[in-house]
Amino acid sequence: MSTTDTRARTRFTGRTAGLMAVGLVLALLTIAPLAVMILGAFKTETDVVAPELLPTAPTTDNFFYVFTEVPFARYLLNSFVVSAVITVVALWFHSMAAYALARLRFRGREALFMIIFSTMLVSLPVVMVPTFVVVRTLGLVDSYGGLIIPAIFNAFGIFLLRQFYIALPRELEEAALLDGASYWRVYWNVVLPLSRPILSALSVFFFLANWNAFLWPLTITSSPTLRTVQVGIAGFQQQYAGNWNYVLAASTVAALPMLAIFVFFQRQIVESIKTAGFR
């Protein structure tokens, strides 16, 4: 082996080791809070507040307390209903809008897409006040409608689906059109079945985003029966500020569905990112 090859291999190995070290540090920084949360959920108040003392045996009393002393199951149900409805309705409308922007020819199509795309640059706090005014005018404050309807529109979903549809072979749709199928039939029988990977990934993104939503549910609801899990944990943290074991137990329960969804759908997420190339 020549000296040049040896040096190149040495540089490559050193660079790889450096990247692996950086990746390991980032992984540890990401996993550490999650590990602290899960371990703290099984500790007593003394173990959490004063870890230097002799630790006691792990306990599940924290979870029992969370589900018996506060309506935490109701918070979980509210979050699930809101997240599921938003995900299903958003995917339905987003896929239709994206297909129209990708395949149909009409005046102002590109301008309309740019307007939709530009909304991705506007953060929620900027539009929260006008959105609240609209919701209040419609009489949807402190209701499931106020939680669900404003969150249905998401420019990211339309953008990603449009890029996916542009990448689909036109021959499949043209063959269906030649057989006499309408655009609605093509969309329903041809496009949607081919969209399962990207729809699966977007369903995960939408569900997790709305499951973790805090600012809008806190603003639009005041009734305890409409609290979502994140708002419930925030109120739980204020009520039991000194009992971090209860707060960590509640946070662990709220995090379990997210972890389970990611574990089961990680392949679809990766495949959708690879196949929905930005064109």
Rank of each mutant, 00 (worst) to 15 (best):
L53W: 13
L215E: 00
E52F: 13
F214G: 02
V126R: 09
L248I: 02
E171Q: 04
G242P: 02
R15C: 04
L202F: 11
N212F: 09
K43W: 04
G108L: 02
L256E: 00
D61N: 11
F206E: 09
T30F: 15
T219D: 03
F205R: 04
V190F: 11
L194P: 01
L101F: 12
A255V: 07
S143V: 01
P217N: 06
F93R: 01
Y246D: 04
D47F: 05
R109A: 09
V85A: 11
S83W: 01
S118I: 05
L199T: 00
L53C: 02
I269D: 06
R107C: 04
V49L: 15
L112V: 08
L215G: 04
L104P: 01
F207Q: 00
P217D: 04
R227K: 12
L138T: 05
M114A: 13
A57I: 09
I116G: 03
I116M: 10
G108I: 00
A98C: 09
L77R: 11
P55L: 08
S200R: 03
F67S: 08
R185E: 15
P193L: 13
A97M: 15
P224D: 14
G242F: 11
I152G: 01
R107G: 08
A276R: 00
T59F: 08
Y246S: 06
W188S: 08
I38Q: 07
Q237G: 06
V70K: 11
L259T: 13
A35R: 06
L112A: 14
E52Q: 13
V85M: 08
F159V: 09
P224W: 07
I115Y: 03
F278H: 03
V263A: 15
G277N: 07
L53M: 10
I148W: 03
A181S: 15
I273M: 15
L160F: 14
V82C: 11
V135F: 09
I31R: 02
S79M: 00
L259D: 07
E110P: 00
Y165N: 00
Q239Y: 11
I261K: 06
G277C: 03
W184R: 12
Y99L: 10
T219C: 06
H94K: 10
A175D: 11
D5Q: 12
V141T: 14
L160P: 03
L168A: 04
A102F: 00
I31E: 03
V49K: 14
R185S: 14
L161G: 04
A209K: 08
Y183S: 09
A213D: 14
T4H: 05
V190M: 12
I166N: 05
T4P: 02
T4L: 13
L208K: 06
A98I: 04
F42W: 14
S118H: 08
L194K: 10
E69Q: 14
F106L: 06
P193Q: 13
P130K: 01
R185I: 05
L104G: 05
Q237T: 15
R170H: 09
V253I: 15
A181K: 14
E173P: 04
A241C: 04
F206V: 10
R267L: 12
A201I: 03
L199N: 02
W244H: 08
F236G: 06
